[in-house]
Design a protein around this nucleic acid. Sequence first.
DNA 1: CTATTAACTGAGTAATTTACTCGGTAATTA
DNA 2: TAATTACCGAGTAAATTACTCAGTTAATAG
Lengths: 154, 154
Amino acid sequence: MRLSTKGRYAVTAMLDLALNGQDGPVTLSDISENQGISLSYLEQLFAALRARKLVRGVRGPGGGYFLGRPADEISIADIICAVDEWVEFTRCRGKEDCRGGQRCLTHSLWDDLSRQIYDFLTDITLADLVARGLEKEQTCQGKKDSATLESRAA
Amino acid sequence: MRLSTKGRYAVTAMLDLALNGQDGPVTLSDISENQGISLSYLEQLFAALRARKLVRGVRGPGGGYFLGRPADEISIADIICAVDEWVEFTRCRGKEDCRGGQRCLTHSLWDDLSRQIYDFLTDITLADLVARGLEKEQTCQGKKDSATLESRAA
DNA sequence: CTATTAACTGAGTAATTTACTCGGTAATTA
DNA sequence: TAATTACCGAGTAAATTACTCAGTTAATAG
């Protein structure tokens, strides 16, 4: 498993689709502006997402992107794996011999952990995130009553 | 949260200490050989780990590294945060205004997820990993049902 | 006391990944 | 037909990863 800013970009972009894709397709330009990512980089990310059928593109004016499946059928792990090209699972299985046993043991422990994280993220869908977020009704600036999570330092 | 090969190196190295640090300190040379990482790179990683008191160094012949605390008091999140310099939490809180609300919402959803992953990894200690690994008694090559996990190297 | 060991430190750099720029083509709509 | 937007690929700047090298301290063994 791997968790980088690239994966974050992909997840937030997909969230953007989940939130705004109800009425019509969302353009990459919109996402680019919303998320502060360059258009070309988004195109690269969406090429990977499209290859995994996580999004569907519509050309022409009024076009843009839709989610490829309902939001409750897209897990965070799906998204991250799509852009981060994760495999690299037990690398000492083939080329690296593990005669010593020690190296092999630590690697298999890591793979075990990696698998746990993967399973964890497989159980969380885009829909889950959106639902959990809406239920809190937290907008960044909002901060109504007692909470005051971060009070205007500057 | 961030999960890179750098974090993996740190975790497997710490696992190495947890597994071999019983009798005496473990040298970076040993770890370097076990894990296939260069000595200098390990020194960099251990500088960060030492700064967070996750390891304790002993100089001179017969020296090496110990865990800074018992293995059941060191979480995976501790290790990863030490080397990956993670902070970057809700980046739209200060400099980026979130008038649109859209960008802000996706970011806060991401931060929410990031927090979940962090909590998940905070609950897993080095000792947990080792215990879980031993209980499975999985060696990479061996896979014979009887023991074999410590097969005499040095 | 001397030599060796191994932790520490820091500057410099190759390799890789991230993120972007640019210049296009293909499909769709008005 | 013209505008729009997905789609495509080569080239590159910036950042991070991972390493080499060249030392210095501290502790131990002889």
